[in-house]
Design a protein around this nucleic acid. Sequence first.
DNA 1: ACCTGAACACCGTTCAAGT
DNA 2: ACCTGAACACCGTTCAAGT
Lengths: 187, 187
Amino acid sequence: MRADARKNYSHLLAVARDIVTEHGVDASMRDIARRADVGLATLLRHFPTREALFEALMCTNLDALAQKADELETSNSPDEALVSWFREGVAFVHSYRGVVDLIASAHADPDSALFASCATVHAVGARLLLRAQAEGTARADMNGDDLFALMSALGWLEGQPAFAPRADHLFHVIASAILTNPSKRVD
Amino acid sequence: MRADARKNYSHLLAVARDIVTEHGVDASMRDIARRADVGLATLLRHFPTREALFEALMCTNLDALAQKADELETSNSPDEALVSWFREGVAFVHSYRGVVDLIASAHADPDSALFASCATVHAVGARLLLRAQAEGTARADMNGDDLFALMSALGWLEGQPAFAPRADHLFHVIASAILTNPSKRVD
DNA sequence: ACCTGAACACCGTTCAAGT
DNA sequence: ACCTGAACACCGTTCAAGT
């Protein structure tokens, strides 16, 4: 990458982080370019899609989440590791307001720039879930998809001002459901 | 209302139902007006906001949901009534793809055209929850907000193609959590 | 190589002018 | 009363032209 291009790249990323933090996932690409004193087409050259921009914005968070899994796996019991990581995962899918919708659709779209990140999170979560299931502390009728889905649902709740105040409590409700072997069937 | 206005109203509603069923909550208002052979401004006269349009689209669903609560309350045990109605509630908040986001934000915005509908659903749900709690079959540390939030989260999951296949199973997971008195605390 | 302005086809809002 | 076309300020996409 040429020197001026590299400078544009990191500057755009910094500006985008600010604007996206403030306006959420629907922030105007034009606004970002404008605030960065760069042509809109230049922004689109570096990040051809909104997904590509968010992939770049969240890649450090992603690495941290994967590393956290390693730490938890070696120093905690399987059930504690699962729930602690689950909490981090909820925060990750809600890195920015509304981004969980992008993640949810990228999760099923191999062409999305966010697909690889989703797959990583999915795989790491599935590993921790399996470990807790082997121990018998996590309910056996769940798989990696379910974990990812519940993580996303909680991330979505956090993004809704109406629900955010109860999100922490609902995390406990759902986490306890994951750690409960179903004794009775509900219809 | 004048005769021609009434005709426009019901025709617009029918067309809107089709387009919204196909394209979800982000359907273009212009498209709806176009397909109805009516000026865009005429559509906006009848439904000044997107919320107003969806309020009209879902008002019959809303009545049905409230009536369902009455039926369940008189003919079922409190826990069965709660879970059955909860299932209907999830379907309601997901009447159209993406509309749950509109509902979630309307829930906290008294100025929204959907606020009254949200309040109704909230109140009905809280009543059924309270009844099951009094009986001791629903966990005591939940309130009407929590029920509405979980309903919305499940409705959101159903709207995501990546998660929809597991939504039914996750309904069971969450429903069983609601009907479980928490024995141990999870962190 | 990389950047840029401009043209394009869209969106919802608003309102003066019509019937 | 009710409807309408048009002007407006926005959006993301695309590309020919610049450095």
